[in-house]
Design a protein around this nucleic acid. Structure first.
Lengths: 245, 245, 245, 245
DNA sequence: CATGAATGAGGGTTCATTCAT
DNA sequence: CATGAATGAACCCTCATTCAT
């Protein structure tokens, strides 16, 4: 990832300026993306002007063109940041072991947490039709990969007996729908922490699929079938910021 | 679709011209909405120009202003059509009887089917920030009502024992998320019929909540007590047109 | 040309509004072109803003888009007006008779006069690279046709003996060069009338090619070989507004 | 192309570094001009960005400002290079002897050849309105000088009897027009060599003016007195790359 | 009522130029 | 000197909306 070898601290290598320039550049690029993704989520892509993005960074509009080719490329890069996060998660899960169900649960948990971040929410709240055709294609491909991963874990779970037989496609749709929706209703100011949401959704979305044991009944209350999902705090009436639809 | 039945020619009531005028007007209004909602869904609100809407109706742009105050009002009326459909469903369910779980299942089924219609999808694919503040308020209130209904049915089910104890809010989020997402991935040209989707989602989304019996019949539970949809199975590889995210 | 048959004066035909609308539209279109071509010639295409064009017509910039698709289309239409003038001239000459030399002289004369008009000068002073590729192709083709006509007349003259043998291509280049240059140096405020220029250039550019008689010695001074091109006024030192280069 | 010959290593004159510095600087300046004039001719001044100029030289945009005050000054210097070439030609001709006609022929020949060079074409293909007013004035004056030279030679020819009486101004326009147009249609890749063009144009443009003998040798005048270019004939169908207009 | 025409507001983009390093 | 970054000024174009006919 980082190309430059660590400069010997004692030598004022002429490379350093380059490196630092490049780092500064990358940092600024990311700062633009952070500002942009926030505004895009807050107001919606079409209502955000590049002037607003620039203003928030205390620069001027054309300065943005030093880092991006245009507004839609900024949108794409925001989206990509989210996609990379998901890809990282998937790579890690694939590297680990476990049953299909176990992998699915890991994915659900991590994905739910991601949906509570700006770049994660980008994945589901940005309209791909706003992208240049070329980038839209890349994005569609990435979406397909993620979707395929959900289905693959489910299919693997069915194969290894950890998941009860079902249609992997529709099951993936149902699970991913719930998860994606988090990106629409989650508010940072709400009372539910991303982790709490992720914990709860992991149980709720995968329990119906599990072949044997239900997570919902935790070990602590092994025979309290109606025992309100003990341990996992009921959040009651606390505002989380959104509605279902 | 069905045009007004020809007025009985024997009653030259002076009211009729009025009536027929108004009806003609309403029909045109609806025609505008049908054209608009399609375009809005196809291309996204901001990419659709009023000229396109007018062209599809073989009228001219300013003519639209005879029926609507502006573009955002058209968007709102499209949205409202969807909201009315949901309200109708809810009213009907409320009028009927049944346990909390039964009501929830009815709602899920009907809502899923609605998500496969243009006006239904409007509910979840249009951005409320595109509305005038006044209309946005109305829409937000409607969304809250729908969300509250989901929660109420769940809470009622918990109270009457048909649903296992859980957090109604998060459960509603999970269910509504899956349902809303249908509005994003469903394609009319796909292989899955709206009813099939609704059936499957009714099972999948409520089964985990059911206190006693599971609708989902698998080989492990050969005796599906209520028999409904029993045996429903994987739909295989048929394209439905979308991905999870 | 005019499509509408003359309306019977006694009948207020419902067609008239249409016709008059269309006429008004065409008139405005042409007014735009006249204003634009002047500005383009005065200041150069890239220095002229659509606001200036609009201002000169007492309308606003976007109003121009009712008549043209964009700035470059206005440029193209100006150019086309000139091309049509030339085409008309050529058509007329072709319809008439005469030797190759006679036709060439007619063309030179008419072309020279055209170069003194705004639309005529457009032909040689606008940069085809400013056009959309599609229009540029059309323009290039038209240029080729005009060039071919020059060469054809010369070749015909050689064939019929009215023009002395020479390379039609280079001869055409030489003649057309002189003529085109008029479009660069001619100033309306100058002392030379377009007709005077055309007369003079007709003699000067074709006399060297003529096989037999030299026009330069007019009938009035049949044997005054060195007689200063009598009859055709020497313009002396009068300012014409430009230089050679 | 040819870089400065290495300074004789034996003379460590303190001036040399200076000299070589200055020479290096001048060479770079010229390199910029060569790159710029090509781009300006290829694409047109307004479509060329300084970045493109810099890229072609493998330097960066601001570096150009070490050599020129701005884009329009680069344009002016390109133009000036061409003007200096013409001035050189004129100076040389003036230094030599000969009749007015002889001088005119020399000028036509040299000017035609110049039109086939980049800097020569600059003279007629760049728009003086793109220059700063100060430079535009200089350029206009230079153009006037060149024009005046054409007229002076013609007038001298009339006076010394080598040229038949005519209006020097219009004759100059006609000749210069043909010559200038070369700068518009000449293509290096074409079949006609600059010298061939110059030869042909020298004959064609001055023959009509000559008092006595015609350079142009046709079958009718088998005895070409001065023999120069005699027999030169039609170049056939070879592409030269341009049209007349 | 419907239309053609016109408008005002605004956004994205480009680019020559400058400045600190 | 050369560079990367930043800027200011413009310009084209789009489109919802209005108005006279």
């Amino acid at each position: 990832m980082d190309t430059a070898p660590p400069a010997p601290p004692s030598s004022p290598s002429p490379w350093l300026p380059f490196e630092s320039r490049r780092r500064a550049r990358d940092e600024k690029r990311e700062a633009v993306l952070r500002a942009a993704v926030q505004l895009f989520l807050e107001q919606g892509y079409h209502r955000v002007t590049l002037n607003e993005v620039a203003d928030r960074l205390n620069i001027t509009k054309p300065a943005l063109y030093n880092y991006f080719r245009g507004k839609d490329e900024i949108l794409f890069e925001c989206w990509s940041m989210g996609a990379e996060l998901v890809d990282g998660v998937i790579t890690e899960i694939n590297a680990g072991g476990g049953s299909g169900l176990a992998k699915l649960r890991k994915l659900v948990h991590a994905y739910a947490e991601l949906m509570a971040t700006d770049f994660g929410a980008s994945l589901v709240r940005f309209d791909l039709r706003d992208l240049a055709e070329r980038n839209a294609g890349v994005a569609r491909a990435a979406k397909r990969r993620i979707d395929a991963t959900f289905r693959r874990y489910i299919a693997a779970g069915i194969a290894d007996g950890s998941i009860r037989p079902c249609d992997p496609k529709l099951a993936a749709f149902a699970i991913a729908g719930s998860l994606n929706w988090i990106g629409h209703w989650y508010r940072r100011e709400g009372k539910l922490s991303p982790t709490a949401i992720a914990d709860e959704f992991t149980v709720r979305l995968t329990d119906g699929l599990a072949a044997e044991v239900r997570l919902q009944t935790t070990k602590k209350t092994p025979r309290a079938p109606q025992g309100r999902n003990s341990g996992r705090k009921a959040t009651g009436k606390k505002r989380t910021g959104g509605e279902t639809g």
